[in-house]
Every structure is written in C-alpha cells, then in structure tokens.
Amino acid sequence: MAKHVVATVAEIPPGGRKIVTVRGREIGVFNLGGAFHALINRCPHQGAALCTGAIVSRLEAPVPGEYRLTRPDTMIRCPWHCWEFDIATGQSWCEPDDVKARTYNVSVEPGEALAKGPFTAETVPVSVEQDYVVVEV
C-alpha cells in the first residue's frame, strides 16, 4: 500500500466527485458532506463505470405506505443496471453481504506534511499552502 495524492480538497466540494487513475486503477473519490470516500470505478456486477452514476439517497419503507428518505446522497447508482452501493462501505443495497464494490482508504493531508513524503504525487503538484486528498492503493 502506498499513499497517492489525487486532488486538492478544493477540487472536490461536498457532493462532488473526481475520478482518478492510480496504479492503473480507476477510482472515484467522493466528498459526502466533508468526508472523503474512495470506491473502485468498476461495478462488481458487470464492470460498468460505477462511479459515474447518479448519487442518490436511501429510500426506505418498513411497510408499504410508511416512507422515509434516509441518509441523503450517500449511495451511488450504477449507470448500467441501477444497482445501488453505499459510497462509504461499497456494500450493495440489495445484497450487502455478498455484493461489494472495493473501497480505498482516503485521508486529507496538509501540503506541508506531503512535502516531507513518503507520498506519491504523479499527477497532482503539491504546494505547502493547500490541503490534499490522499488515497491508499
């Protein structure tokens, strides 16, 4: 595992996402209300570009008629077959125990710390004044 600088924090505002390539893998980096999450850009179902899908909320109903919208904008819906995945855990809504999209650890690091290393910043030039999104791959 190595840490890779993939974006400045300002590049991915809350509700935003950036798709990056790290060591040959496409990864979607999401900002959910200030917390960053990273998910492989490949649906475990049939390989679609999962992270390009719509960001949706959980629609729940314990019984018919008792509707509630919970955890707004925390799921990614695959653009091909509309399977839904929890962005934070990669778990599918339908079969959380059996169908999962790979997740990666993400952290926010100040440029000052990054300048000392040992981080890989192939594509993102680092300056000490900014904070950066770092993915472990």
Binding site: V56, L59, E60, A61, P62, V63, P64, Y67, H81, C82, W83, E84, W93, C94, E95
Partner: peptide, 15 residues
Amino acid sequence: TWRGVRAEVPWLNRL
C-alpha cells in the same frame, strides 16, 4: 429486476 428498481418497492428489503 428488483435489484435495479428496488427503490420503487422499498419495503422489499431483501431478496
């Protein structure tokens, strides 16, 4: 089919 449209029937919360 349910896997893709389950939000239409949110009470169906398992296979």
